[in-house]
C-alpha cells in the first residue's frame, strides 16, 4: 500500500512500489489528463508537480513519491481559470491536444521558478515537452501571455 496525496486528496493505493507514478495516476486514481507518450521521460506528456516542482510521472517509481503531494492537470484549477490555461485559450494553442496537459504543467512550473521568462528561458524549460502538431510557437507566446496575466 502506498499513500499519496493527489490534488489535495490523500488516498491509499495497492500498487507495486516500482510501478511508475503515471500508471497509478491513470489506472488507479483514474485521472486521465496526465498522458502516456513515451515511457522514458522523452516527451513530457506525463508531467505532474511534486510539491510544486515538475516531474515526469512515467519514470518516477511510486516508492519515490510515497507520502508526498502530487498535482495533476486536473488539480490546476477547478474551472480552467489558471493564468496558464487562460493564456492557452486566448492564443488558441492546442491542436490534437494530447501533449497539452504536459505543456501546461511545465509552463506552470517555469512561471513559478521564473515569473517573467525570456524566450531563452522558455526554450530551456519547455524543450522537454514534445508536440507533434508543432504548437511550439503558440506555447511560447502563451507562456509570455500567462506571465502577464499572472502579474495582473
Amino acid at each position: 500500500m502506498v499513500s499519496l496525496t493527489i490534488n489535495g486528496k490523500t488516498q491509499q493505493f495497492d500498487v507495486p512500489d516500482d510501478m511508475p507514478l503515471l500508471w497509478l495516476i491513470r489506472d488507479f486514481a483514474h485521472l486521465t489528463g496526465t498522458k502516456f507518450g513515451c515511457g522514458m521521460a522523452q516527451c513530457g506528456a506525463c508531467t505532474v508537480h511534486l510539491d510544486g516542482s515538475p516531474l515526469r510521472a512515467c519514470v518516477t517509481p511510486v516508492s519515490a513519491v510515497a507520502g508526498k503531494s502530487i498535482t495533476t492537470i486536473e488539480g490546476l484549477s477547478a474551472d480552467a481559470s489558471h493564468p496558464v490555461q487562460q493564456a492557452w485559450a486566448e492564443l488558441d494553442v492546442v491542436q490534437c491536444g494530447y501533449c497539452q496537459s504536459g505543456q501546461i504543467m511545465s509552463a506552470v512550473a517555469l512561471l513559478k521558478a521564473k515569473p517573467d521568462p525570456s524566450d531563452a528561458d522558455i526554450d530551456a524549460a519547455m524543450s522537454g515537452n514534445i508536440c507533434r502538431c508543432g504548437t511550439y510557437q503558440r506555447v511560447r507566446a502563451a507562456v509570455h501571455r500567462a506571465a502577464e496575466l499572472s502579474k495582473a
Partner: peptide, 23 residues
C-alpha cells in the same frame, strides 16, 4: 528554472523494468 534535473533524474536509477533508456 522550470526544468530542474530532478524532473527526469530521480534519486536512483530507474528499475530495470523501465527499460535501458530510462534516465
Amino acid at each position: 528554472q522550470g526544468l530542474p534535473c530532478s524532473t527526469c533524474h530521480g534519486e536512483k536509477n530507474a528499475p530495470a523494468s523501465y527499460g535501458p533508456h530510462a534516465p
